[in-house]
């Protein structure tokens, strides 16, 4: 089974990288760009066929390690 995990900075937390990229895009003439947020994309191969178990294990991985829930949100998708 393949899992895709997305980790993003919480909406109310400043994202200096996103702001810098937004500034760069504006200076290049892409004036239509509003807010930019940068996050992380992780691909995990899971050695299981039990979807429910995979979901609960993934949630634990996100809470414990993959995201810092003080400042980040996460979501994941499961395939296969």
């Amino acid at each position: 089974m393949k899992a895709t995990v997305y980790v993003t900075i919480k909406q109310n937390v400043l994202d200096p990288q996103g702001s810098a990229v937004q500034g760069a895009l504006h200076s290049m003439g892409f004036d239509e760009v509003g807010k930019v947020r940068i996050g992380k994309y992780l691909e995990l191969e899971l050695n299981t066929t039990d979807r429910a178990e995979a979901e609960s294990r993934l949630k634990a991985m996100c809470e414990k390690l993959l995201a810092n829930t003080v400042v980040e949100d996460y979501r994941f998708e499961l395939e296969g």
Binding site: I9, V13, L14, P16, Q17, A20, N68, V70, V71
Partner: peptide, 10 residues
């Protein structure tokens, strides 16, 4: 408590 984020100056 809390967290350390990227410097605002980058």
């Amino acid at each position: 408590p809390g967290a350390l984020l990227r410097n605002n100056s980058m």
